[in-house]
């Protein structure tokens, strides 16, 4: 049933957009929070995200395609008519793609972490160089995966009860989004209440204290960067395997870099990362939604809404005296 929503389409688009668009921001910023809590910054997550998008999509396609071929060959061997299957018939392959993207992302993280463990090496600079490398290698090996169609991650219809098709579609939620919310809560809790969280915070706040307590600073930071990279890889796989759901060289419009910045905005609080990602996702939907209901002028400015709003909120909530409350003491970017 199609219903004319009129202006109600705008709030619905903001909610739907927040759910659809926020997930990559959420994953990258959660991962980066872990990394930054340990006292390192990885600006290269944009490259990790793009590589995750490529490898997740490519592997999901190759695995799905292999399974489809196997099913067809089996049927032929048994003398049955070949089934009408393709790579897209196997959502499980998409989940494997997500897993592979996470592994690949963690490898990028390990490399970044190890390099930054060397004396006098600047983590910001290495991040930017790794960003270039990640994008380059993703585009280099990604050419053959632009044309094929990989399976999509399935979504959960949370509003199946609704008669309004637009509402049903807006609340088609991907499992990764829910996992992201759970992770945000778990991380928030773990940073305060677990030994691991404590170690992470000590290492991030004071290298001297960590050394005194006998922690291996470089090991902790490298592992934290690896986990951050894995999260960014998952964020990339969400882009290519769910929304917008295809691999091409323009798949990311800076989500990885922006998400790193959102961590500072969220003051290293995983729950705040979730709200920041929701805000960013929702307002990203504003421009197209407004045009759809007839607010047609100035769409460049409406499309810039996420940036303007985030900046406004930062200015409003910051103050000179508690400039960097919550910032890990060892973090190069806020020192």
């Amino acid at each position: 049933m199609d219903t004319d929503l009129g202006w109600w389409a705008v709030p619905l688009a903001l909610i739907g957009g927040a759910i659809r668009i926020s997930t990559p921001f959420l994953f990258v910023s959660l991962g980066e929070t872990i990394t930054e809590k340990s006292g390192r910054i990885n600006l290269g997550l944009e490259g990790t995200l793009i590589f995750g998008a490529m490898i997740g999509y490519g592997m999901a396609y190759l695995i799905g395609d292999a399974w489809a071929q196997a099913a067809i060959n089996d049927a032929i061997a048994q003398g049955l008519p070949p089934p009408a299957v393709s790579a897209r018939s196997y959502p499980m392959a998409a989940w494997l793609g997500v897993g592979i993207a996470a592994i690949a992302g963690s490898l990028f993280g390990v490399v970044h972490g190890l390099i930054c463990s060397l004396k006098r090496v600047n983590d910001i600079a290495v991040g930017i160089a790794m960003m270039l490398f990640g994008m380059g290698i993703a585009f280099y090996f990604g050419k053959p995966f632009i044309a094929p169609a990989a399976p999509d991650l399935p979504s959960i219809p949370f509003a199946a009860w609704s008669d309004v098709s637009q509402v049903r579609d807006a609340f088609n939620v991907n499992a990764l989004f829910i996992i992201g919310i759970v992770l945000a809560v778990v991380l928030w809790w773990a940073f305060r209440n677990t030994r691991l969280g404590l170690i992470l915070r000590v290492v991030g706040d004071s290298a001297d204290a960590a050394r005194a307590l006998g922690y291996n600073i470089n090991l902790v930071r490298t592992l934290a960067t690896a986990v951050g990279g894995a999260f960014a890889g998952i964020g990339g796989a969400f882009l290519s395997l769910y929304y917008p759901g295809s691999w091409n060289e323009g798949i990311s419009s800076g989500q990885g870099l922006m998400a790193v910045a959102l961590v500072i905005f969220a003051r290293w609080n995983p729950i705040a990362c979730f709200w920041a990602a929701m805000l960013f996702g929702g307002t990203s939907a504003l421009g197209p939604a407004l045009q759809a209901v007839g607010v047609t002028g100035g769409y460049y400015l409406f499309n810039a809404a996420p940036y303007i709003l985030t900046l406004g909120l930062m200015v409003a909530t910051s103050s000179r005296n508690r400039a960097m409350a919550g910032a890990p003491g060892e973090l190069s970017i806020t020192r």
């Binding site: 739907g16 990203s284 197209p288 759809a292």
Partner: peptide
């Protein structure tokens, strides 16, 4: 109904624009 994305290649916004059109009853 037309929606301008403002860019020649901007995957997420193209997807959002498509969704916004369909939300308005475009088929």
């Amino acid at each position: 109904q037309v929606i301008f994305t403002g860019e020649w290649s901007m995957a997420v916004r193209e997807a959002e624009a498509t969704n916004a059109l369909i939300d308005q009853g475009v088929d």
